[in-house]
Design a protein around this nucleic acid. Structure first.
Length: 370
DNA sequence: AAATGCGACAACCGCATTATC
DNA sequence: CGATAATGCGGTTGTCGCATT
């Protein structure tokens, strides 16, 4: 037997909200609040709407201080950085951008930012490229974990591409001697793959809990903000753990160090001596089983490396498998090859944004706190 | 001028989680 | 402690307007 519907579909109005409906809902909530019961609210005020619909309308459009459109460059930075590190956890990302809703950010990412950063191509070419990339990834693991590569979600591929693109761009700028003294602004995705990682195929519940580690400068507020966001995302387990293991700092990942992978971004090496750490466990952030994108990446990388280069040694990130550029122009493997390729591509505005190897979240946070 | 394609965005749907009884 | 209801969240769809053919 299926789940009971939250409302009577037949008697509920759907589609765009009228100004009258908006006014009714807004007036009631401003005066009385939601009353802690969205389901009953529409009946109270005579709206033929589902409670969920009312909630969505209020949260996304009617509540005070909502901003729409015109995302700033700083906001784009934050969205990209967080997307790389935690994926499509839009509510958490939205928590970093006051006035923005998860729906807004999601739409902005899907319609603009993704294309901007991953490169906009004609649909047919793009579709072909994705197909080729997927096929190449699968082929790269032939004889090994082909299934693991094939199982790599489109979101994972997207983030691999974004990561590679950003790193490629960074390398290109570094090689050119640009911005050597400029403040770091973009994340360098730091992947620390620890040894003794269980092999793919084990039960999800045994899978490694991946942690996103955001290290920050002591006086910066980003930690507080991230902490608030993470707390809101029910990651209190990690924070409690950190309090219990203060000495462990950034290296503490619940569940045992020998079965952990860490994938995230950190501030520049010039900011070494970091005092605070915020960790978000992928077991809560990336899915119920703690088996999410990072694990997919790990599976993919290691299913290849275990055979070809003997796996990771000493926490060194193995090179990504050889890939064919989406336009078919080159076979790429090592970062420098990809850098050369990306440098030759049309990066659009994103290219102007890449200047360093880290992200200065505190600047944005301070700005929005004003 | 009409048809078609495409991008942007609002809204819906279903699942997961949390709260309550 | 289990069942049920309410809420939160992310993916997907529908619709509208603009651009192109």
């Amino acid at each position: 037997m299926g789940r009971a519907p939250c409302c009577d579909k037949a008697s509920v109005k759907k589609g765009p909200w009228s100004p009258e409906e908006d006014a009714k809902l807004k007036a009631y909530i401003e005066e009385n609040g939601t009353g802690g019961n969205w389901i009953a609210l529409p009946q109270k005020i005579g709206l033929k709407r589902c409670g969920k619909s009312c909630r969505l309308r209020w949260l996304n459009y009617l509540r005070p201080n909502i901003k729409h459109g015109d995302f700033t460059e700083e906001e784009e930075h934050i969205i990209c950085s967080l997307y790389i590190s935690i994926g499509s956890r839009w509510s958490i990302i939205a928590a970093q951008l006051p006035g923005r809703t998860d729906n807004d950010i999601k739409n902005y990412w899907n319609t603009k930012l993704k294309k901007k950063l991953l490169g906009k191509r004609a649909p047919s070419r793009r579709a072909r490229a994705n197909q080729e990339l997927g096929g190449t990834l699968a082929a790269a693991t032939a004889g090994g974990s082909t299934a693991a590569a094939q199982a790599l979600s489109s979101s994972a591929l997207e983030r691999i591409q974004l990561h590679m693109r950003l790193q490629g761009l960074y390398s290109a700028f570094s090689c050119a001697g640009i911005s050597s003294n400029a403040p770091p602004q973009w994340p360098k995705l730091e992947t620390t793959l620890l040894p003794n990682r269980p092999l793919p195929g084990m039960q999800p519940t045994d899978a490694i809990a991946t942690a996103v580690s955001v290290q920050h400068h002591p006086q910066h507020l980003v930690g507080q903000t991230l902490a608030a966001a993470a707390a809101a995302a029910s990651t209190s387990e990690v924070f409690e753990a950190e309090q219990l293991h203060p000495a462990a700092g950034a290296n503490y990942i619940p569940g045992g160090p020998d079965q952990r992978a860490k994938l995230g971004f950190c501030s520049s090496s010039a900011e070494a001596g970091l005092a605070g750490t915020v960790e978000m466990s992928s077991s809560s952030l990336l899915g119920g089983f703690g088996y999410g994108l990072h694990d997919e990446l790990y599976d993919f990388i290691y299913s290849r490396c275990d055979q070809s280069v003997g796996g990771a040694q000493g926490g060194v990130v193995p090179p990504l498998p050889e890939l064919q550029c989406p336009d078919g122009s080159a076979i790429i493997g090592a970062d420098e090859k990809f850098s050369a390729w990306t440098a030759s591509c049309d990066h659009g505005p994103a290219g102007q944004l890449i200047q360093g190897n880290s992200v200065n979240l505190q600047d944005y946070v301070l700005g929005y706190d004003q």
